[in-house]
């Protein structure tokens, strides 16, 4: 559905994107993650036909951004990170205006607008002035706007940025609904916990280069190597730590502040079941065993170096 091949964008001497290769299939919810200035917005704007790539190619629904921009615009819905609103326009007028720009016939417009207002729960604001809406409401209105022409692809640049917790949860629920409708969504965000709930694939970008692109589970598995396992014993924790430290599969073992034995496994060891087996064989009684959780934030922190282009 979305594909980029060696996509490069430079601004003078600054390279914002370096030969980016990205593939997003139909129905994917793709989380685009990266530090500020990594090239996320540039990529999304190229896909939204707002920027021309310096070199390389980008395709949306099989159409090239170089030369088929107008056709692409009929198939995408783009919500920028920052956008303005028209003064003295009601919510319905705003949607009618964009409906007309997307070429929706006047007879169908009312039904379509009612439909998207229902979906985004904005019916009660249909006569409100757009510039009087809160930020959360505006973001919902922006989603209503991009759904007017029933696009196959949604490009969402930081849709939850600057929203209060309630508005963020509401947007997340709305995006889940869109996911269930089978839309292909490319979403960039800094709120990684929310992306984990929404996305089936992620891409991690830094300094214009894609460091990782693939299923979320694979991203987590990639940083899971060298896990930490924490064990609480009934007694003899210090002796157990010393014994474990000498084990072939263990990199280090020590007591932590809470009295747990913290066992750091060697990088190539994925399976930690040998730890309880070894301890039981040595006569220790295990009260609790915890695997240190690895999430998207860990993956992000381990894969990126905190540099911007």
């Amino acid at each position: 559905m979305i594909e980029t091949r060696y996509l490069t964008k430079t601004y003078g001497k600054l390279t914002a994107l370096k030969e980016l290769n990205l593939t997003i299939d139909q129905g994917d919810i793709y989380g685009f993650i990266g530090p500020n200035g990594a090239g996320k917005t540039t990529t999304i704007r190229i896909l939204a036909t707002l920027l021309r790539p310096t070199s390389g190619q980008a395709f949306v629904c099989g159409l090239s951004v170089n030369g088929q921009a107008r056709e692409i615009r009929r198939k995408i819905g783009y919500v920028p990170d920052e956008f303005g609103t028209y003064e003295d326009m009601t919510v319905t007028e705003y949607l009618e205006f964009f409906g007309a720009l997307y070429g929706i016939p006047p007879k169908e417009r009312k039904t379509v607008i009612q439909g998207v207002l229902d979906l985004t729960d904005l019916n009660f604001k249909e006569h409100a002035q757009v510039d009087s809406l809160s930020r959360g409401m505006r973001q919902r209105l922006a989603l209503s706007r991009v759904l007017l022409h029933d696009p196959q692809v949604l490009l969402l640049d930081e849709p939850a940025s600057g929203l209060d917790p309630r508005a963020r949860i509401e947007i997340r629920e709305l995006l889940k609904e869109l996911r269930n409708m089978g839309k292909t969504i490319l979403i960039s965000s800094h709120i990684l916990s929310e992306l984990r709930e929404l996305c089936n694939k992620v891409g991690i970008i830094e300094q214009g280069s894609l460091l990782f692109s693939g299923p979320l589970s694979e991203a987590i598995a990639r940083v899971r190597k060298g896990d930490v396992v924490r064990v609480r014993l009934r007694e003899g924790s210090e002796g157990a730590a010393a014994l474990l430290a000498e084990h072939d599969f263990v990199n280090a073992a020590q007591l932590d502040e809470e009295g747990f034995v913290e066992v750091r496994l060697r990088e190539q060891i994925d399976d930690y079941t040998f730890v309880p087996e070894f301890l039981v064989s040595k006569g220790y009684k295990i009260l609790e065993l915890r695997e240190e959780d690895v999430d998207l934030e860990d993956a992000f922190m381990k894969l990126t170096r905190g540099q911007v282009s």
Binding site: L50, R70, R73, P80, G84, T85, F98, L101, G103
Partner: peptide, 12 residues
């Protein structure tokens, strides 16, 4: 005002 970007992605 940031409204042109909204027009720019329509097939106008």
């Amino acid at each position: 005002d940031g409204t042109l970007i909204l027009l720019a992605t329509t097939p106008m």
